[in-house]
Design a protein around this nucleic acid. Sequence first.
DNA 1: ACCTGAACACCGTTCAAGT
DNA 2: ACCTGAACACCGTTCAAGT
Lengths: 242, 242
Amino acid sequence: MARKKPDSAPALSMGALSKGALSKERIVAAALAQIDRDGLAAFSLRDVARTLGVYPTALYWHVPGRNALLAAVVEHALRDIWRPRGRLTWQAWLRTLFHRYRAAVRRHPNIAPLIGAQLVSNAGIGPELVERILAVLAEAGFAGDRLVDAYNAVVAAKVGFVTMELAAVPDEDRARWAAAMRARLGDVDPVRLPVLARNLKRLGNRAFILRWENGTTVPLDRSFKLYVEAFIAGLERVRART
Amino acid sequence: MARKKPDSAPALSMGALSKGALSKERIVAAALAQIDRDGLAAFSLRDVARTLGVYPTALYWHVPGRNALLAAVVEHALRDIWRPRGRLTWQAWLRTLFHRYRAAVRRHPNIAPLIGAQLVSNAGIGPELVERILAVLAEAGFAGDRLVDAYNAVVAAKVGFVTMELAAVPDEDRARWAAAMRARLGDVDPVRLPVLARNLKRLGNRAFILRWENGTTVPLDRSFKLYVEAFIAGLERVRART
DNA sequence: ACCTGAACACCGTTCAAGT
DNA sequence: ACCTGAACACCGTTCAAGT
């Protein structure tokens, strides 16, 4: 841990608007830009410091460490993913939430692994969105423990598809790896794996486990839509049961 | 890249059964054990080498590198998650697939982030499972592009919840962080966030975004069940539409 | 208050050399 | 065929010192 940063107002003596002034916002912006450009695997504090023209250790005055910075990056990228209710049905509101979330992550696809797989990133989500989801589900008829369960199901469904769709591609020898995947598909035995063999052309590079590019270059729009419609229709069904 | 390993049979001169003999299997087993014990963030090739009593560079004869080793670890942990069809309906078979998958990952919870978030890990899944899912969905009435979409929806749903449930907890100052999360919950304003405030006790540490432990210590069994039932019921519904 | 500068204890990966 | 051993180019983070 770095020394604790006091909560007092920032010093004005140095000119907060001067181009050289470091701040948490500038660090987060630089970090996000670096991740967008080079990917998450290549991310390093030292690189961020280099682009900002400061010593690596200078960052520690504004940010507690690497993980906290990544959490802040996620928070920054996911501002404003929800809209006020308006006159939408609960189903329609959930639908727009799912699609807006996916659109937001697709603007910074390389951060996707951070969201689903790291508990820290949750810290930045903000309770207003939680309230909206809970309110909508309560109106749909969920209450008590079932409300908690429906909420967890919604959040998991929202994040799940997008995380997989934008899963990190191995940075090393991409071409080699793509060729190996293609070869695997070519070797499919139509006797042992008939349905797979029959649909190979449709599935190749467009289905999980059978692709060599991720959603950045090959988006799965149609599949996402079916996924969302199925999940919402399913919620409608289960809310009726005990 | 390391020098290319020839495909010829392993040398018998050294005694393949001797305890000291290195092999890909022993390396994968040691790596998995280390991840189970210390978590993914602490994983290092050098540590694996230390526990095996060899120089770090010795690993490179058997494994191309760090990422490839992690992919092999995932493959090893996820063997045998599916069962033959038997007399189950397609809905029942999907249900058991989801629950068996979750059970398999829960045996090695720290690998969860690798599965959903890394495209490499897909390489080890095996096309038999793909075929089974496709066959079941074809029987349910999906065909053509809709078959691809339903398949993607199933795989994303299967992996999504579990990845989130077992999201990595920050290793540094866990107690501090848990306290901060508790404090956030205590500060919820019942006027601005009424539904959240009303259900605080139920949601605290048991709902995504509002918890400070992951599924290793606080499993979300009931929520997972609702999630699976909703998704399968939803698939039933959407298959009827065009 | 905010940053420099040196230092520590690590990494993954390469390459040549041994046996 | 399989491993040692040295070396390279990195990391995140600490601490004391400057201004």
